[in-house]
Each structure stands twice: as structure tokens, then as C-alpha cells.
Amino acid sequence: MSILVAILFYFAVLVFAAGLIYRIGLYARTPAPLKIPTTPAPTTRGGVVLRMTREVVLFESLFKGNLWTWAMGWLFHVSLAVVTVRHLRYFLEPVPAWVGFIQPFGQYAGITMVIGLFGLWARRLFVERIRYISTPSDHLWLVVLIVIGLSGLLMSFVVHTDVIGVKNFFVGLLQFRIGAVPSDILLLGHLFLVFALLALFPISKLLHAPGVFFSPTRNQTDNPREHRHLSAWASKLESEN
């Protein structure tokens, strides 16, 4: 079992990293031939950084668009970020002070994360127009995340798993040493779904995470009159004349 988990771990991380690098490379290589920021837009590079930061940290546009989706979505994402940081303690020895500091928040963030996910799922199930646009995979991702969250919460609060054993296993994996993983069904289910999520990330709608950084309507500076913006393939058209 330990060997299987180890193989899946390496596989998932590898696919995640390679897939994401490939995808980000693809986005970066594809030219944006025209200036299409959704205006009003910042006129300076610094302004764009600020706009992107507000978008990524606060979900500014979604806030304008729909308060419920924003509240649930933001709650989920922020909680997930805190929970993820908390999990660093299972990979790092000694545990850095800031990871230790976040530990109590991280445990409760697990609860708010699941609340956010149920909120998002409720919209998919009960709001007519959102139900109409939902595909099976949209539901399935929410279920996967909810199960990951719930299994984690159970291990934190109800049926404690052998966290020392878990940590030894993963610290070992980082040094390419395969130890023994605690054979706890909750833990194995939790891990299996996280590995699946990592491996499927680069070929799924989870690509919205890197995608937002490459969105021309958000990351372009509003200065088309001041600077000539020209992509490589468009400038070739000029030399053909």
C-alpha cells in the first residue's frame, strides 16, 4: 500500500507540474494581437498589477456580478489557501513558525471551506439558470472537494489519524525514501482524491487559476494611443505589403 501511495504521489505531482508548465507556456506563447482591456482600465503597469491583485485576492469582478456566488466562492478559496498552508506542516521539518501560527486557523478554515463548497453546490442545484449551465463535471468537482474537506475534518476533529506517521511518510517521500503510510481508510481516501485533483488539474476547469493571469481583458494596460501594440504575426502582414 505504501508503495502504491508513493507512486501515485510522485505521478500526481509530476503530471500537475508538467501539465501546468505546458499549459502556462501555451498561454504565454499565444499572442494577444489587439488591445482589449475591459475599460475603464488602468493606464499604467502598476495600475494593472493592482487590478490583477484585487481580482485574484478579492474577486472584484465576481463581487460586482453576484454577491452570493462571490461570498461562497471567496470563502471557499480563502479557506482552501489557509488549509493548504496549514498542510505544509506535514512536509517540512522543522515546522516554520508561520506555519505553526496558522495551525489553529487552518483547522477552522477546513470547516468554512466545506461551508463555501456546499453554498456553491446549492446554487448549482437550486438556481435554475446555474443548474442549466452545469455539466456533470461541475458537480463532480464540488463533490470531490467536499469529500476531501470532510475526510480531512473527520481526521482533525473526530477519528484522529496517526499524524506523526503521515508526516514521517511525506517527509520521507520528499527525500525519495518510501516509509510506511498509516493504513487508515479516511486518510487513504483523502490522499487518493487529492492526488486525482492534482493530476487532473492541468486538463480541467481548474485551469481558471493560471488562466486569470493571462486574461487580456484584465492584464492589459489601457494605453493604445500612446504605444503601438503589435504582435509578431500581425507585424508580418505589414512586411508583406
Binding site: P31, L62, N66, S215
Partner: peptide, 20 residues
């Protein structure tokens, strides 16, 4: 291959429904 907007927008949508 020619338009980053199209390339990114085909992938990025999560069906959140803010636009709906």
C-alpha cells in the same frame, strides 16, 4: 493559436454563472 483571449477563455470558465 493566434488569439490568447480565445485560448484562455476556452479553458478558464468554471460555469459560476456571474454573467448569466
Amino acid at each position: 493559436g493566434k488569439f490568447r483571449s480565445l485560448r484562455v477563455y476556452m479553458d478558464a470558465c468554471v460555469h459560476c454563472g456571474a454573467c448569466a
